[in-house]
């Protein structure tokens, strides 16, 4: 924080500003004086008193600074924690599946459910701006599916998930797969209460997607290179893609698979079963 005026701006930090008077603050000069903020103002004279010490900024001495430090998404974060508590108490593994549109989320989820078979009882919540096409596709796998239509909203939020979960029978459920809206930017900001973020990078997406969308890839617990059957047609550079994923998400577990041919799917499903074992035996009150 700025030592001079308490305005929250470390000196030298580039700021983006708008509105009247921004040219005054753009250089981070201190027209307003911290020493006047917050004192008692117990003078009994009227408001026609001359405040000669601020001739360059009339009215500035009438202001006060409110120090807030509020998380802007505090409400979503709180609801996400509530979801997380609900899922943990029931021993449900929850994964939030994210990618750009067309990277193969729906196909992968459908094939994952088929291959898991009776190993994990699975349900799906799927978000799209419009249509229930994905829900209809996913129901062919036999799992219960709830479609969320977000309208114009480009991501899922924790309260949408909470409402969708109410439509599911969660008794005995092992795995909840949340297919987020196809978008590599906005969903990164919203915790849904998941255990794991799974980010897909299809071989058609380009090897540098992780470098172009670092917020999304940084938060990935798992990165899946999908549509591996198309790698030659797309001239996919495997080493470059892996290196880029490692730069941004060094901690992420990496899978390469094709939901179409089934290559790599067994490793992915075994991983989910192991993750579920860990969740099932976890102390719900452990952080």
């Amino acid at each position: 924080m700025c030592e001079d005026c308490g305005c929250g701006l470390p000196a030298g930090i580039p700021v983006t500003v708008s509105g009247p008077g921004h040219q005054d603050h753009g250089e981070h000069e201190h027209q307003h004086h911290g020493h006047d903020h917050g004192h008692g103002h117990d003078h009994d004279h009227g408001h026609d008193h001359p405040h000669h010490h601020h001739p360059s900024e009339p009215g500035a001495e009438e202001r006060q600074t409110l120090d807030l430090r509020h998380a802007i998404l505090e409400k979503n974060d709180r609801l996400a924690e509530r979801n997380r508590g609900f899922f943990r108490a029931r021993g449900i593994l929850v994964i939030n599946v994210l990618s750009s549109p067309g990277s193969g989320k729906t196909t992968l989820i459908g094939e994952t459910i088929r291959r898991l078979g009776k190993r994990l009882k699975t349900a799906v919540i799927v978000g799209d701006l419009a249509t229930d096409n994905d829900a209809r596709r996913l129901r062919e796998s036999g799992a219960p599916v709830v479609q969320i239509n977000t309208g114009t909203v480009c991501h899922l939020e924790a309260d949408m998930v909470a409402r969708a979960v109410k439509q599911l029978d969660t008794v005995g459920l092992d795995l909840l797969i949340i297919e987020n809206v196809g978008n590599l930017v906005c969903p990164a900001s919203y915790d849904l209460g998941e255990d794991l973020r799974v980010v897909l990078l299809s071989v058609a997406d380009g090897e540098d997607k992780p470098l172009k969308y670092p917020p999304m890839f940084h938060l990935a617990g798992v990165v899946i290179v999908s549509k591996l059957d198309l790698d030659r047609a797309c001239d996919f550079q495997r080493e470059a893609a892996t290196a880029n994923i490692r730069h941004i998400a060094p901690h992420a577990r990496l899978f390469e698979l094709s939901a179409k041919t089934g290559a790599g799917l067994d490793d992915w499903c075994d991983y989910l079963v192991k993750q579920h074992e860990a969740v099932k035996h976890r102390d719900p009150l452990a952080s």
Binding site: C7, H41, E61, Q64, L66, D67, H218
Partner: peptide
């Protein structure tokens, strides 16, 4: 990651009351 994910309303200037 120690910083870089902030989405914070840090402070504001209002009328002095």
């Amino acid at each position: 990651l120690r910083a870089g994910r902030e989405l914070e309303l840090s402070s504001m200037e209002v009328d002095h009351v």
